[in-house]
């Protein structure tokens, strides 16, 4: 014993770290990544590798430019930019090899402009992966849509080998499942359904989600609320046609968004009551936007709702233990008002 350490209380701490949480998210994304690679092959692999590499490299280059010691950077590296890069890649279609610059530029935008510019981990206002995807969609809209290819497995129900179209959801929102020629099971497994690399195989996403819930990284209520509200509002918008529920829940990037994007710590509210409000609103906004635009809008909805998180944090807070219950507080206020009014009247007379 040469030195003693002086630190602030408590001296015992849970072993979990930010790095550990991010590693858990990466592990939870493995099934979806594998499914994407199996379904879409080499093009998916290149897109994912490029986006992860450019995201991580952007963080390193940024910190090097700020003259941070390389060893310190390695020590500080908490996998957040790797998660960003992987999520960004998973929300992209399996792009043609000639379009290599799209994942690279999106990764640079996501980490450089959305995360590092605002101060790095924990300081970003919107989810970097979502912002990167939206950036790609707006900047390279033509190329992004041309990137859709059918997965390696055809539809289980109709046997359609090739399904032509931007995304089944677009047609779904217009015409329903029959028009597309896929079943709910197809949507669930991602067979015969083109889409983004990570979003087609729902079973892989749900497996990842269960892992995150089991590891207590996310709370199961939040994605469930989001998904359920989106489905219900979609049903309601279509004139209570319950056949719309499953396709609108399983189609598109809703489950990927709900499990991995909307639950991002930094860009979701920091307490339970505000989170419930946030996820309900998110579901409503997603369903309404889908209904209005007839395209897949999960990322846009999350991006929009990220912006009101500070507002929710500031105004919706749990009441401290022992505080007067809200109902009683309101009653007391009304009574006090009455009493003062009576007093005023008495004074007036």
């Amino acid at each position: 014993m040469e030195t003693v350490i002086i630190s602030d209380t408590p001296h015992l701490r849970k072993k979990r770290t930010t790095k550990g949480i991010m590693l858990d998210v990466l592990i939870a994304l493995i099934p979806a990544t594998v499914a994407g690679l199996v379904y879409f092959g080499g093009r998916a692999a290149v897109t994912l590798i490029l986006s992860v590499f450019s995201s991580v490299a952007t963080e390193f280059v940024w910190l090097l430019c700020k003259k941070t010691d390389f060893k310190t950077i390695l020590k500080q590296f908490d996998y957040t930019s790797a998660v960003t890069g992987l999520l960004l890649g998973l929300t992209m279609p399996p792009l043609e090899y000639s379009l290599w610059y799209i994942p690279v530029l999106s990764g640079i935008f996501a980490v450089g402009a959305v995360k590092m510019l605002f101060g790095g981990t924990g300081k970003n206002i919107v989810n970097p992966a979502i912002a990167g995807r939206v950036f790609a969609f707006i900047a390279f809209s033509g190329s992004m849509v041309s990137g859709w290819i059918s997965p390696a497995f055809g539809s289980l129900s109709s046997g359609n080998e090739v399904y032509a179209g931007a995304t089944p959801l677009t047609d779904l929102l217009g015409g329903g499942l029959q028009a597309v020629g896929v079943s709910n099971l197809d949507l669930f497994l991602g067979t015969g359904v083109p889409g983004c690399i990570g979003e087609t195989c729902k079973i892989a996403l749900i497996a990842g989600g269960i892992y995150l819930v089991a590891r207590k990284v996310i709370k199961f209520q939040y994605p469930l609320i989001y998904i359920a509200v989106t489905g219900l509002v979609s049903v309601f918008m279509s004139g209570t046609d319950w056949n719309v529920f499953l396709p609108s829940v399983l189609g598109g990037g809703l489950i990927l968004g709900a499990v991995f994007m909307a639950t991002d710590y930094v860009t979701s509210p920091n307490n339970k009551p505000a989170s419930y409000v946030y996820f309900v609103l998110l579901g409503v906004v997603t369903a309404l936007l889908r209904y209005g635009t007839k395209i897949e809008v999960v990322s846009f909805a999350i991006l929009l709702m990220n912006l009101i998180v500070p507002l929710l944090n500031a105004y919706i807070r749990p009441r401290p233990f022992g505080a007067t219950p809200v109902i009683k507080m309101i009653k007391d206020k009304i009574e006090a008002k009455k009493a003062s009014a009576v007093k005023k009247e008495a004074d007036g007379k």
């Binding site: 350490i5 630190s7 408590p10 001296h11 015992l12 701490r13 770290t17 930010t18 949480i21 500080q76 908490d78 101060g119 790095g120 981990t121 924990g122 300081k123 710590y265 930094v266 860009t267 979701s268 509210p269 920091n270 307490n271 339970k272 989170s275 807070r317 749990p318 009441r319 401290p320 233990f321 022992g322």
Partner: peptide, 27 residues
């Protein structure tokens, strides 16, 4: 036993608010 890790930026995870016995928002 004793934790000696250096602090890193807050990631707004809300774990502190979840456990606070007084239902406050430590972050």
């Amino acid at each position: 036993e004793a934790d000696t890790n250096a602090p890193t930026p807050c990631i707004n995870c809300g774990a502190c608010a979840d456990v606070c016995p007084m239902k406050l928002l430590p972050m």
